[in-house]
């Protein structure tokens, strides 16, 4: 074999790819660069970036009850929750302060896994860069709340599953309440 044939064959490969990039489709060896920011690649459904809180119809109906489980399980401890009190000082089932420090959050998704109330989920937003570290990247409660429609838009399959589960739980609760009522009504009739 001629000395240099290996290099020439390699150069042949690059030449073939060079010409193929003009007429081949991206999946088969053509140009596959997506010119960001004019065009964007769609992210996959399960893509997890930073968290957000879900509310059902209005921001007052948020699902979060300030149970503090996500703050305790968060590995880098980036969530800070303070429970709300009503006028008499009794605790309410809502957070007054819910801060997530996005400079600390490592996008692991554990808060989403452990939440028992389907309140916190991972968002798809990644274009949140800013010049100020603590002003812009410390998200408070109003920044984190997003509606259920948004959740259904970005993650249709997961949102459908969550909605079905919540609907089922509601139906069960209604049925249980109705059963108790009929039982109580039956008891009222009996001693009569």
């Amino acid at each position: 074999m001629l000395f240099g044939m290996g290099i020439l064959r390699g150069l042949g490969v690059t030449l073939k790819n060079f010409f193929a990039s003009y007429y081949k489709k991206p999946e088969e060896g053509g140009l596959f660069t997506v010119e960001y920011p004019e065009k964007r690649l769609p992210v996959k459904e399960r893509f997890r970036n930073f968290p957000f809180l879900v509310y059902d119809t209005t921001p007052e109906n948020m699902r979060c009850v300030a149970c503090d489980i996500c703050a305790k399980e968060c590995p880098p401890k980036c969530i800070y929750i303070v429970r709300d009190n009503d006028e008499a000082g009794r605790p309410l089932k809502k957070p007054a302060i819910f801060d997530i420090d996005f400079t600390v959050c490592m996008n692991c998704g554990i808060c989403e896994e452990v939440c028992p109330f389907d309140a916190i989920y991972m968002d798809h937003e990644f274009e949140i860069a800013d010049a100020n570290r603590l002003d812009a990247l410390l998200y408070n409660l109003p920044d984190l709340l997003k509606p259920n429609d948004y959740f259904q838009k970005i993650r249709p399959n997961d949102a459908a599953q969550v909605d079905a589960r919540r609907l089922e739980a509601e139906e069960k609760k209604k049925a249980a309440v109705a059963a108790v009522k009929t039982q109580a009504a039956a008891k009222d009739i009996k001693p009569e």
Binding site: V43, K44, F47, R48
Partner: peptide, 12 residues
């Protein structure tokens, strides 16, 4: 990996 776990490199 992104489709399956949610992240390209830090899969968890």
């Amino acid at each position: 990996f992104e489709e399956v776990s949610g992240s390209r490199m830090m899969c968890n």
